[in-house]
Structure formats: structure tokens, C-alpha cells
Computed example of a mutant assay.
Amino acid sequence: MSDLTEVADVLARGDEARAVVRVLDRHGFGTVEPGQLLVAGADGALGGVLLHGALDDQATALAKDARDRPGVVEAHVAEDEAVAAGLACAGGATLLGHPLAAAPARALAAAFARGVPAALVSRADGSASLAITGGELDAVEGSLGFAAVDGAAVAHARRLLRRGATVTERVTLEAGADVLVDLWIPVPTMVVVGPGAIADALAAQAGVLGWTYRRADTLAEADAAVAAFTDADVLVLIDHDPAFDAVLRTGLQGRGFLGALGSRRTQAARRERLLGAGVTEEQLGRIHGPVGLDLGARTPAETAVSIVAEVLATRSGRDPSALGRATGQIGA
């Protein structure tokens, strides 16, 4: 999920309806990142960008009108203008602008700020919309007009969530409604504290998963990174220096996955130090240590796989087991 801080700021403002402009359909432009969103506040503030700004004139004009009523604009960009904006080639897009009430707007803003999944579903004519947010998309604000349509929209968004990627699609729901769905999945940042072969292997795993990877070798750098964590972010503490206990204490005051390597003896010593520093037993339960699933890992690469596997299992609320022994829906 691209940086949506500016979008969240505009969405969170005021009690009046905001306007959002989204890509309803497009052709050309090459590969385009999904989840494109432009937001206009009641105070005129703008946040976000569509198609690298190539359609700024049309999009901003549509946003101003869309605070009062939905509308659709057909926009086209010539080859030279598209390439100058950073797009691969010329193309055209159908832009949908529509009002968004305060409650779903704030729900989206909170989800973007926390770094949890969020979906915005609207009728293709912009006449109604709802926001679905949370780790399992379990909170709903707004309505598409009928309970059956809302239920179908939520079910569809949750199916998309299992793909684990941000997506934009126009679809006809089972209830017969033509809707535009934007689902934003946060991209985790993995912060690894300490050097070595496991740190390098974790960097490779982060690359495979499309996660952002950061190495932090100083206490100040690590502490600042963890203090800024969202729910999606991951700490892997490799360095056993007791000074880095401070990073775990900072993490326990915020969000994200906290993992620490080390033998059981190292873990026990760290636990006693943290208890002595005022950390509670309940808080200690948030620290995954020794971090990783019991996969029989022996090499740094295998250890890295076990670590990211525990992160994925924790985020999905699963107790890991072999798929062949699973009784529930595979991939659910």
C-alpha cells in the first residue's frame, strides 16, 4: 500500500461529506498501481494522486463537483504527456467522483493511519458507498442501499483480502449490483536489529514478499523505527545486547509484530530484565521469542523462512499446521 498519510489527513477532517475520485475503468498507460485515490475535503484540501498526476486538471475539477453529487469523466492522455508523467504509454480512463460521508471517511482514515487493511466499495454510479476496515475487514461504515448488497460487498472484499495484495476492480456482485472496489493492503516494513547471515536472509525474504526491509544497527535508529510502527510492521531483534531491551519496551507501547532471536537462556535473561523494568506479564506475551515456527530450520535462509512464517500466521490469527491436516477452507 503506497503512502496514504496525506489522504488519511484529508479524510479525517470535519463533519461534512468529502469527495473522492477513483479510476472506474482504464485502458493503456501500461502497468498502473491499484488503489488510486484522490480526496477533496469540504475545506478544499486535496490529498492523493491519480495516474502520476497526468489527469490532474480533470480529476481536481471532478473532485470539486463530487462533494455535492456523483459524476463520471472520460479522460485521455497523449503519449508525450503520459511518458512525461512517468506512465509507460498513452491511455484513457473513466474517473468516478462521488461524495463520501464522514463516518466511512474517518474509518478509512483511521485504517490508513494504523496500517490495517481497508476497502472502499461504491456503486458504479457513485450513488452510495461503504468502507470496510480492520485486520479481517470486520468493521463496516456506510451502506450501498440494501442489506443484501452490503453483505455481498463485504464477502467479496474479504475474498480479495486473502490474495494479500492491493487491488482495484469493477465487479457485479452476486446481489446484482455494479460496484467499484478498492482494497488497500498495507505493505509491512521489517526492521531487523543486528548484523549477520540471518539478517541478510531476512532481507531476501522481505524482497520475495514485497515487504520493505530496514537494518537498524544503533539503539537510536532502532527505537525511532519501532516507535513509528503500524499494525503491519515487524521487528526482528537479532542483537542480544541488553541495551536493545529499550527497543522492545518502545514496541510494547505501540503496534506491530515484535520478535527476538536467542536461545532459551537468552530469552529467560531478557524476560527477567524486562520484568525488572516494569513490563507486565501480559505485555511480555506480545514478544515472540525465540521468534519463528518450529520448521526444523538449520540454515540462515531456513531460519528466515520460519520467522516470516510466524509473522504471517500471527497476522492471520492461525495456529500453524500442515494444510493436509486442515479441516477449514484452504487459503481462507
Rank of each mutant, 00 (worst) to 15 (best):
I330S: 12
L323N: 00
L248F: 08
V187K: 02
A131L: 00
A59W: 04
D56V: 10
V191I: 08
A85H: 01
H156A: 13
A124T: 10
A224Q: 07
T189W: 06
L51C: 02
H240R: 09
D3P: 03
V121M: 07
L183D: 02
G324Y: 04
A147V: 15
L96A: 05
R162V: 12
L95N: 12
V121Y: 05
F257K: 00
V191F: 06
S321Y: 09
L87T: 06
G276A: 15
I330K: 09
R162H: 14
F112A: 11
R265L: 05
A63N: 04
A203D: 15
R315E: 03
G196R: 01
R162K: 13
V191W: 03
L55F: 08
S129Q: 03
A220N: 02
L323S: 00
L248K: 08
A17N: 13
G135V: 08
L312C: 09
T230H: 06
R114A: 15
A277F: 09
V171F: 09
V20Q: 06
V291A: 02
F229C: 11
A85E: 04
D223T: 14
P34E: 05
P99Q: 03
L4I: 00
P188Q: 00
D217H: 10
V308S: 02
V247C: 08
L293E: 01
I185A: 08
L120R: 06
E272M: 00
A157R: 00
A222T: 06
V21K: 04
A224H: 01
I307H: 03
R286K: 13
D178G: 00
T166A: 04
L202R: 01
M1A: 14
H288T: 01
R273F: 07
R123T: 13
R69Q: 11
R273N: 11
F257G: 06
G115I: 12
T266W: 03
D25F: 08
A224T: 05
I238H: 14
A59V: 12
V140D: 03
V279E: 11
A153C: 06
L219T: 00
A109I: 12
G142D: 04
A17P: 12
R26Q: 14
R22Q: 13
R162F: 10
R159F: 02
T166D: 07
E302L: 13
V291C: 10
T94Q: 14
V291L: 03
V149F: 08
V154K: 03
D178W: 01
A119R: 01
H52W: 07
A227T: 06
T5P: 11
W211Y: 15
L312K: 07
V167E: 09
V10P: 08
M190E: 02
L275N: 01
G134A: 06
W184D: 15
A246Q: 14
T303S: 13
P70A: 07
V234D: 05
